[in-house]
Nucleic acid binder design. Structure first.
Lengths: 149, 149
DNA sequence: TTTAATGCAAAGTGTTTGCACTATA
DNA sequence: TATAGTGCAAACACTTTGCATTAAA
């Protein structure tokens, strides 16, 4: 078993749940995909193992609860992504309105500035900010290239 | 008729649609509410006028298309808010995880900094950013007071 | 051997659509 | 009077749940 799986297995068991074959297979797909997946996309990858859609949803909810994955909502649809071991309170995503692809923006210098800004808002508005989801919308590099043609 | 309605009426008609009684009533509720409303909430306010839920949805979609309102997604549910005449490319919302209320963060000094940061991301990641939705999650002032009791 | 987890189908949400009818420009 | 708009009910897409059965600790 992959060494990442061991710590996740422990986390699942620590919370009183069982590390089933289904959870392992779904976890593998999340690791393989390395991008945001919807429940249906995960289901299409695992259904040949006789895993039902309900199990996918239940597993995603469980994984979200214990913090293995993060759920993001885009246009009313849930996408799931591995949180790995970084539980940073900031998630920046970009959605291309043309090709609909969702890109993770991972840029620590920008992230630090965002966190500072959030602190500023928290103080100004008397809010305790625990988490921040930033959804940027526009044209990705590829689609703006296409536009030029 | 309210003077704000006149310009909206013109906008609707300019786009080839008709300014019906239903649209006027729904618009009035949006003005009265002054907060984010779901389609069901709007429906509950207008159904005594014999307006159907489908009409609410159709109207929200039309209003979103022509830019009268803005649609935001929170936990998979659509909320609608008047955009008024400010079509700013940045929308900061705060959701309290305790009382579930959604607060508009309207702070121009913070907004300018956010816009700068978005420009920075756009340049770094080669993205054309047209719009930004920021969802902050935490405890509102009221709920963090309650916690202290 | 206890208890969480599963697959399936049914039920629940939020939203859209087809259709005959209505009302606006 | 032509055409967008309406209410209703049915359809749709995504998600949850009840239940009898299975499998992990």
């Amino acid at each position: 078993m992959k060494k990442e799986f061991l710590s996740i297995k422990k986390l699942i068991e620590k919370n009183g749940y069982k590390f089933t074959i289904q959870k392992r297979i779904i976890l593998e797909e999340l690791f393989n995909a390395d991008i945001h997946l919807t429940a249906k996309e995960i289901y299409s990858k695992v259904k040949n193992n006789n895993i039902g859609l309900a199990t996918v949803y239940r597993t995603m909810n469980l994984f979200t609860t214990i913090g293995i994955i993060k759920e993001i909502h885009v246009d009313g649809i849930s996408y799931y992504e591995l949180k790995m071991y970084s539980k940073k309170p900031l998630h920046i995503h970009f959605k291309c309105y043309k090709c609909n692809s969702i890109i993770d923006v991972d840029n620590s210098s920008v992230e630090i500035k965002y966190l500072k800004l959030n602190r500023e808002i928290g103080e100004n508005e008397k809010l305790q900010i625990h988490d921040a989801n930033i959804m940027l919308i526009g044209l990705c590099d590829k689609c703006s290239e296409d536009k030029k043609l």
